[in-house]
Design a protein around this nucleic acid. Structure first.
Lengths: 145, 145
DNA sequence: GCAACATGACCGACGACATCGACCAGATCC
DNA sequence: GGATCTGGTCGATGTCGTCGGTCATGTTGC
């Protein structure tokens, strides 16, 4: 289904998604029409879900990053989810098993802003916040083999 | 420093980082050499850190996704960090303030694999695992304005 | 107040690239 | 064993990126 060449292409695009078809052709040992066709099929099958950029949030003043565990008060689960989705500083949120219903990532410019945003949630949920000090593993892919 | 046009370019590339310079030129109302120059400067300044792809881990058999909080046993902090970095199924890891030293994301193909991987850590740390049921907020950018 | 410079844009020409159609080789299936 | 499907190459054509030259604008210093 996805063979070695597809994985080479995916890895190459992970490193730099703006590589030309020609460059990808050289890396994979195929011709560029073949590469184009393979990418088309990877997209079609939903393996390749999109091409995007990595941005440094610090450049927009987001000095702080926090991971917030959120435990909604009884009956507030839906509303908490809506709130999190509607606050754009929440840049990631998973609904998980266990006592904490949500685990979310929050980017803020200051402690004051962190406080303000969490206050909005604290009427609906208990929260537990951990400030990110360092990121030992940056987003990467699990092994494809 | 980063003006409206830069933000238009960044947003356009967030949606699809393979857009041609010409397409970006049309979107932003500039000429393509100008766009090329702006991208060059955004990269140079570290705002634009890279161009990458979104892959669906399910397509490689990763049916389960977990968020693991890790509290190293006394004296094992360094070793725990090394372990996490060296296990490729950990696709993200932050070192944070608070009792849990690390919060990591883990992609696995099965419960057995989850168990195996966590056992490796449990000689060095206490862990607390939450299975991801849903992702209400997919990775996005905080407001740039 | 103005000359000199820096910045950031445009245009046009040229070379590189993507795309399309035609064709081919190997596996699969009656 | 021939029809068909799949996934590849090649070469022509048109589109795109890049580079040098130019210009407008805003800033600095005398």
């Amino acid at each position: 289904m996805t063979d070695d060449i597809d994985q080479i292409l995916i890895s190459a695009l992970m490193e730099d998604s703006r590589r030309s078809l020609k460059a990808l052709a050289q890396i994979s040992g195929l011709s560029s029409p073949s590469v184009a066709e393979r990418l088309r099929r990877l997209e079609e099958r939903g393996v390749l879900k999109g091409y995007t950029v990595e941005i440094d949030p610090k450049c927009f003043g987001y000095q702080l990053q926090a991971i917030v565990r959120v435990r909604p008060l009884p009956g507030q689960l839906q509303e908490v989810e809506r709130q999190i989705m509607s606050i754009p500083e929440f840049t990631e949120c998973d609904k998980v098993t266990g006592e904490d219903c949500f685990i979310a990532r929050l980017h803020v410019r200051s402690m004051e802003q962190l406080d303000t945003l969490l206050d909005r949630l604290n009427t609906l949920a208990e929260t537990n916040t951990a400030i990110v000090k360092k990121t030992p593993v940056k987003r990467r892919l699990p092994p494809m083999a």
